[in-house]
């Protein structure tokens, strides 16, 4: 079919491309600017000369950051929490999602369990009681404070559950006739069949642990126990969170090492930027999984 384009349509299309191009540019421009600053010399950055391309290109700020003990210590705390948190989260997510994906006619406790889990995400005791609990359990300043409170991530459980539900029930019936129990069904049939869903959920868990920082600030008293994002949070807010006049604040901002901060921001974002191409693809899948209703 031949579609004739009217003049009005052509004008619209041109503006549409321009407008969307501008929107995309505005989204990424702040990042490019700060990236350029991180790769520029201190004086060029302080003089406000850097736009979207480094001025007096140098990687000194990156070298300085990577040579700094606090940064490296925090990096390893992050690695530790991501790995430990990942295994706890994924195992619990699979173990929780599988029974909940059974029909309530087969597993009559299913709905009671699901109310139990859903209520835990829609009502909360708030941060003070949670903090006190962590304190009384003796978990402050330990890695467990970063991985145990979020051990069951209900949103990932829902995603996996929806995927498990899509698998035909006949599999289960056939397995029973062969004398298998639910453990065997989960381990030998559901897990191998759910690799795409498990990959999606895995990425979400890894990103989630890498990105969280407030728990580090809340539960860690000693700086050396901060994960990277918590450490970075204290680095970037030091200039704005003090009570001072506008003049003082600007002075401090000028002398403070702008390129050094920028470099640390990008080093911390680097793992996410590296997995981003996969993330986008898997996210679309996750979206499809999540939208499936039982």
């Amino acid at each position: 079919m031949v579609i004739r384009e009217t003049t009005g349509r052509k004008v619209f299309l041109v503006f549409n491309y321009l407008f969307l191009g501008l929107v995309a540019f505005l989204c990424i421009a702040p990042m490019i600017n700060v990236l350029a600053i991180s790769l520029s010399s201190k004086s060029a950055a302080a003089g406000g000369l850097v736009k979207f391309w480094p001025v007096d290109f140098t990687v000194d700020s990156y070298k300085y950051a990577l040579g700094k003990n606090e940064f490296i210590t925090a990096f390893f705390v992050s690695i530790k929490r991501v790995i430990l948190g990942y295994f706890i989260n994924i195992i619990l997510a699979v173990l929780t999602a599988f029974p909940l994906s059974r029909r309530s006619t087969v597993f009559k406790w299913r709905n009671a369990y699901s109310v139990f889990f859903v209520f835990s995400i829609i009502f909360s005791g708030g941060i003070i009681p949670t903090y006190m609990l962590i304190k009384y359990l003796g978990l402050l300043d330990t890695i467990w404070a970063l991985v145990l409170p979020s051990a069951v991530s209900v949103l990932n459980v829902i995603l996996l559950m929806n995927f498990f539900r899509e698998l035909p029930n006949e599999i289960e019936e056939a397995a029973f006739i062969d004398g298998a129990d639910y453990w065997k069904v989960l381990y030998s049939i559901y897990i191998p069949l759910s690799k795409p869903a498990l990959a999606t959920v895995s990425l979400f868990i890894l990103i989630g642990h890498w990105n969280s920082w407030f728990d580090g600030i809340l539960y860690m008293n000693k700086m050396e126990n901060y994960p990277l994002q918590s450490y970075l949070q204290t680095v970037i807010v030091t200039t704005v969170n003090l009570t001072m006049s506008l003049e003082e604040m600007e002075k401090i901002q000028k002398v403070s090492d702008r390129t050094f901060k920028a470099a640390q921001v990008f080093l911390t974002a680097l793992p996410i930027l590296m997995v981003y191409p996969f993330l986008q693809k898997y996210f679309m899948k996750g979206l499809v999984l999540g939208s499936v209703k039982g």
Binding site: M31, N33, V34, W213, Q229, L232, V235, K261, V265, T268
Partner: peptide
Amino acid sequence: FLSWVILGGILID
């Protein structure tokens, strides 16, 4: 996909 710490660092600058 970036945390508010990363975006905050960028915004403050």
